[in-house]
């Protein structure tokens, strides 16, 4: 979570907020922030660290592991209408790549701003070519995009 906290400013620039969840109490969140995370991130964790001790929220999102009593590493991107646009779930030993969450938010924001007229090809990043699906693009993607552009 410190990786997200350290780059929180980037999310704010995109108009995005963060909510984190584990089965620990909010009191333990405070201790973790005060005694460890604040030593990795100036000023400590800047977003809501929420508590899901009974696993209710994790169950609703399909990430609560009943056998271990923990939340899996689930990450969801929710749009301004409250619709889930992306989800990723990892087992505990492998951490996420925060830059990929940023990239996906940027891509979903571009698609939303275009009213669905544009789509982002594999590996898209801001400044790279987008696709404009329509009759003229059928069978012609090769003219505007190649795997080497990823």
């Amino acid at each position: 979570m410190s990786a997200v906290a350290a780059q929180y400013r980037k999310l704010q620039e995109l108009g995005a907020e963060v909510i984190s969840f584990s089965v620990d109490s909010h009191f333990v969140h405070k201790m973790w922030n005060d005694h460890e995370l604040s030593k990795m991130v100036d000023g400590g964790v800047p977003f809501h660290m929420a508590s899901d001790q009974a696993g209710n929220v994790g169950r609703a999102y399909g990430v609560y592991d009943e056998s271990q009593g923990i939340e899996l590493r689930g990450r969801f991107i929710i749009d301004p209408d409250g619709v889930i646009q992306a989800m990723e779930v990892l087992t505990p030993p492998v951490g996420r790549k925060f830059a990929e969450s940023i990239r996906q938010i940027q891509a979903f924001q571009l698609v939303r701003a275009s009213g669905g007229k544009e789509a982002t090809p594999a590996g898209w990043e801001p400044g790279k070519v987008t696709l404009k699906p329509g009759p003229g693009l059928v069978g012609k993607v090769w003219e505007v995009w190649k795997p080497s552009m990823e």
Binding site: M1, V4, L11, L14, G15, A16, E17, V18, I19, S20, F21, S22, V23, D24, V28, H29, M31, W32, D52, G58, Y61, V63, I70, E71, L72, R73, G74, R75, F76, I77, I78, D79, P80, D81, G82, P92, R96, S101, I105, F108, Q109
Partner: peptide, 14 residues
């Protein structure tokens, strides 16, 4: 948080 983008992150434990 309606009207904003939200990154919702679950993790195994503090």
């Amino acid at each position: 948080f309606a009207g904003k983008w939200v990154l919702l992150c679950f993790y195994p434990g503090d």
